[in-house]
Nucleic acid binder design. Structure first.
Lengths: 191, 191
DNA sequence: GTAATTTCTTGCCATAAGACAAGTTTTCTA
DNA sequence: TAGAAAACTTGTCTTATGGCAAGAAATTAC
C-alpha cells in the first residue's frame, strides 16, 4: 500500500529502486481527523505529507477576514506549504483536513539529507516544484479567462472528490465566486 | 556592473564569494531588441536570463486566439520559463522583450553543473522557486479578491516601469480586464 | 433527540466589467 | 514624411456576479 502510493508520487525516470527505497523509508504514516490543522499561519512548516486517503485544503484570510481556499488536495498528492518549508519562514497559509485522512509524513531534516545526497531526487524535486508553478500559472489564466461555470466544471472533472465532499463555501472561494453564485451555478448545471 | 546586478539576484546567506564567482562567470551578456522572442511555444528552453535593463513579458494564447500576459519582468529579475527549462519539455508560453534589453544569459548545462556541485547554490535555487510559487499564489488571490482598480494600483506601485512602458493591452490582459475597461480605470484614477 | 449551528438556496436589486463599434491619437515603416 | 497600422479612448447597451437578507435543509453537539 505505502509503496504503491509513494511510487506514484516519486515518479522520475532516473530514480533507482534503491533510491526509492531510501526515500520511502523516511515516510511515516499518520492519521488526521476531519478539521485537523497541519499548519497555521505564522508557524514554520517542518514537514510535508503525501495524502493516501481523504481531502485537505489550504487557505488564507483576506483583509475582510473572509477565508479563501487557495488549493485542494486529494489522494496521491503532496500536501505542502512550499515557501514556508523551503524558505524556512512563517507560513502565510493554513492547511487543514476536510475529512479524516491518512498520510505519509516526511520531516524536513530527513528530506534535506536525501535531497543533497541523491542527485536524481533533487531532479525529481525540482521538476515537481516546476510543475506546481505551472499549475498555479494556469489557475490565474483560468480565473481571468473562464467563466465561473467553466471553472466549476473543470474542477468537477479534475477533482470530483472535492465537489462531492468539500463544503460549498470552500469551493466557492477557491473558484472566486460567492456562495450564492456557486449555488446558482450548480442549479443551472442541473437543469 | 555585472557583479553588482548578479549579487542582488543571487542573494543567499550561505553562498560564499568563491561560489558567487563561479556562478557569475557562467553568465554571458547579451542584447535584445524590442519585440525579440527569447522563447516560443513548443520550443524547449535551454537558458534563462537576468534582466539588467529593459522590460519583458511572458504570454499565452487562449482558446479565442487572444494573448494573455502571464508575467512582466523588470530590471534585476530572472526571466525564465521554469517548467520548460526544468522539466525539459516544450514551453506553453512565449517570452518577449517589450523594449530593448540587456541581459545576462545562463545556459542550462552550465547551470546544472553548478546546481549539482554547489549545495548552497541549490538551496538558493529552491528558495527562489519557492518564492515564485508564492507570488503566483498571491496573484490568484488578488484576482479573486481585489477590484481591477486595486490590482492596477498594486502593479503601479510594484513595477511602475511596466505601467509606463508596456502597451495598455498587455497590462489589461495581465490584470484580467479588457482594454476598454483598463482605459476607463486609468481615467477614473486621474480624476 | 432536540436545540443550536452551519450549510445551502433563493429573491431582489446594484454594479463592475464585457461586447461591440466608432473615433482619435500615436507609432511604425517604407 | 505620408500612409498604414497599432494603440488608446469613449459611447451605448448587456450580462455575470455581488450584496444583503430571509428561509430551508442538513449537520453537530449536548
Amino acid at each position: 500500500m505505502k509503496e504503491q502510493i509513494l511510487r506514484q508520487v516519486y515518479q522520475h525516470p532516473e530514480l533507482s529502486d534503491s533510491d526509492l527505497e531510501k526515500i520511502f523509508s523516511i515516510h511515516e504514516k499518520i492519521q488526521l481527523k476531519k478539521g485537523d490543522f497541519i499548519l497555521k499561519e505564522g508557524q514554520t512548516a517542518n514537514n510535508y505529507m503525501v495524502l493516501e486517503k481523504g481531502i485537505m485544503r489550504s487557505f488564507v484570510y483576506d483583509y475582510n477576514g473572509d477565508d479563501i481556499t487557495t488549493n485542494f488536495f486529494i489522494e496521491n498528492e503532496i500536501v505542502i506549504e512550499v515557501s514556508s518549508l523551503f524558505q524556512r519562514i512563517p507560513a502565510k497559509e493554513y492547511m487543514q483536513s476536510l475529512t479524516d485522512c491518512s498520510c505519509y509524513k516526511i520531516d524536513f531534516d530527513k528530506f534535506q539529507e536525501l535531497f543533497h545526497s541523491i542527485e536524481n531526487f533533487r531532479e525529481w524535486g525540482r521538476a515537481w516544484l516546476s510543475n506546481s508553478l505551472f499549475e498555479f500559472k494556469q489557475r490565474s489564466v483560468s480565473i481571468i479567462k473562464e467563466s465561473a461555470t467553466d471553472r466549476y466544471l473543470t474542477l468537477l472533472k479534475r477533482k470530483p472528490q472535492i465537489i462531492q465532499q468539500a463544503p460549498l463555501k470552500n469551493i466557492a472561494s477557491f473558484l472566486g465566486v460567492t456562495d450564492s453564485s456557486l449555488s446558482r451555478i450548480r442549479k443551472s448545471i442541473n437543469l
